[in-house]
Design a protein around this nucleic acid. Structure first.
Lengths: 351, 351
DNA sequence: CTGTTAGCGCCTTCAC
DNA sequence: GTGAAGGCGCTAACAG
């Protein structure tokens, strides 16, 4: 009968290195007060035995949990997955978050929470009680939900708000949505457009207002037409994009370019334009506010603002881990750079 | 000064319900030997206090960890995320796996592992030691890597192999790749094609062989042309798809239809065809073997086999959880249904 | 610098 | 049916 493959614990390492259990603990936690020689001996024992501390036991010991919890909006996320519309928000989050966590020997656990639900608080409390994460990453619109931020604050759990710029507690991490919208608008102005339509995002997202502001500022600065009816309300969805675009194109003097606050709405604009017999970009230029995979594959492919989702999530993870480690971390908002990717959907207006 | 928001533990619940700590444990674990009245009382206390057991403490107590570990291929996954080519494998996995886990009060932790690396074993051992998951979900090609399956087996950790059909240990969960390839081929035969090209997947994946078999069987059964040069090697990548397609189209008697083992290769086939001045589907029909978002947005959109990734992952999670619970679970391979989605890239051949 | 002593929150085993 | 010990692997606090 083969030897039972028992788990290697700190005790085994201690015995192997001929030191106390506590010394081993000090070594793996980079604690002070261990002679280099001993440290070395312990390290060798660790390698030899292939010892890896149990995350659960570590937590129990009263230290960190080495876990970060990332919270996304349930409905929107599941809807995105179900529809298979190619949004890669989650992938980019994982890319940035997981890799950063891995660097620090942390794990990121991804979870879905319904912002609107009456029991947001209960849902999140449960997750916190069960997991005891060292930090929480909030993505839009959670970062702007006071129920959530207050809960976290009261529990004393560090958190980061992605896509959220408000002052408040927690690390605010965003790209400059206002500047991005302005940059997109300037791109259109530079091409010679004067009537530029704008489709807003859901009001629930703070960044929607920021984008609108940026658009307005650029329009004004560029001396283009400022008219309220050039701004049509949307909520990021394809359907809302259809409605908004129809509305814009039905104006007596319709815009020659449209800036949409999401990829789905931009795609919708493209569809409406096509249905109306308009050539894109000849008759109508379109700019998308997400550079998700699909906008590269539409015909024409869309000029788009690219959000640094991976970078924002990585930053969030980094800040949270540093905060937990006790490192001094400034709480100035992090504003990460965006990209304007010019593709085939924008060109000078015909008239 | 506000009351310090201490964590609610099983002790508090016990006190609140006026029972022993142990009785509470019995209730939350559906243990036997608790009077309904008491059980009720405890449940109420739990609700009132908002108690949720700590996953870490549970593990330490010697029971389950309520964690499932999902292992993906590192390079391929990161490459997919970086390129933003719209593959939604990971999303579909999360959709199926996380939701199923949530049902059972489990968590799925997603991790990347390099199959080729010399230290696969070490990497995985570390993750296991740190997390102590109750089960592991292996995605291609990990499920076919004996180093990994043997390690898991020797450690006695239940695991599921997605996209893997081999006998071996662990739950085999797959779609019928062979049947799917046959179905796609039959679809083309039905349209009147006689020379059907096939681009294989990487040999490292067991399913690549299965697909080839299905194609061959259907070609033979359909009385179509069986020729070795109608089969071109690929490795799932766009680049390999370009090469394979050029090779097929350069044949003296080129195929009138191509079945590609991945979306990227199908897209590559489309590009080569276009570059060669061929009309798709007029001159060349193309079928993709992944129904990722982008193949819906190509022009024309691609007819494709849709893998039930979410369903497979959900099944994996379910089986693993049941196995841990001690429920009897058969170990017959699970074969889940696929779909053939007919779109604009397939039509009868012109000649 | 290093070892010893208490727990962390829960579950298992054994009494009652 | 229920409760009382004991310990899981680790770390914090305190000795030496």
């Amino acid at each position: 009968m083969p030897t039972r493959a028992r788990t290697v614990t700190i005790k085994h390492v201690a015995a192997e290195a001929g030191v106390s259990l506590q010394t081993v603990s000090r070594v793996i936690n980079d604690g002070p007060n261990v002679r280099d020689a001993v440290k070395e001996r312990v390290r060798e024992a660790i390698t030899r035995l292939g010892y890896v501390p149990s995350i659960a036991a570590r937590r129990m010991g009263g230290s960190r949990s080495y876990l970060l919890l990332a919270l996304n909006d349930r409905d929107r996320t599941i809807e995105g997955w179900r529809s298979g519309d190619g949004t890669d928000w989650v992938d980019q989050m994982l890319l940035g978050g997981m890799l950063e966590c891995a660097e620090h020997d942390y794990r990121m656990i991804f979870e879905l929470v319904d912002t609107h639900s009456a029991h947001v608080e209960r849902e999140i409390s449960s997750a916190l009680s069960a997991l005891h994460p060292d930090g929480v990453i909030l993505t839009p619109p959670h970062g702007d939900n006071p129920e959530i931020t207050e809960l976290l604050t009261s529990k004393g759990i560090p958190f980061a708000r992605i896509g959220s710029t408000g002052e408040g507690p927690g690390f605010a991490i965003s790209m400059d949505d206002s500047r991005a919208a302005a940059a997109a608008t300037e791109h259109l102005l530079g091409l010679g457009h004067h009537r530029i339509g704008f489709i807003t995002g859901s009001e629930e997202y703070a960044l929607s207002a920021a984008r609108l502001d940026g658009y307005r500022a650029a329009v004004r600065a560029g001396g283009a037409v400022e008219r309220p009816d050039l701004v049509a309300p949307g909520d990021f969805t394809f359907a809302s994009g259809l409605a908004a675009t129809r509305r814009l194109l039905a104006l007596p003097e319709p815009p020659t370019a449209i800036l949409a606050s999401s990829d789905q709405m931009a795609l919708a604009a493209l569809e409406v334009a096509r249905g109306a017999g308009l050539d894109v970009p000849g008759d109508l230029s379109i700019v998308s506010f997400d550079d998700t995979p699909i906008v590269k594959f539409s015909a024409p492919s869309l000029t788009a603002i690219r959000q640094p989702i991976a970078a924002m999530t990585a930053r969030a993870a980094e800040l949270l881990i540093r905060a937990t480690t006790g490192e001094a971390v400034g709480d100035e908002p992090s504003v990460l750079p965006f990209d304007l990717i010019v593709r085939g959907s924008t060109a000078p207006p015909r008239r």
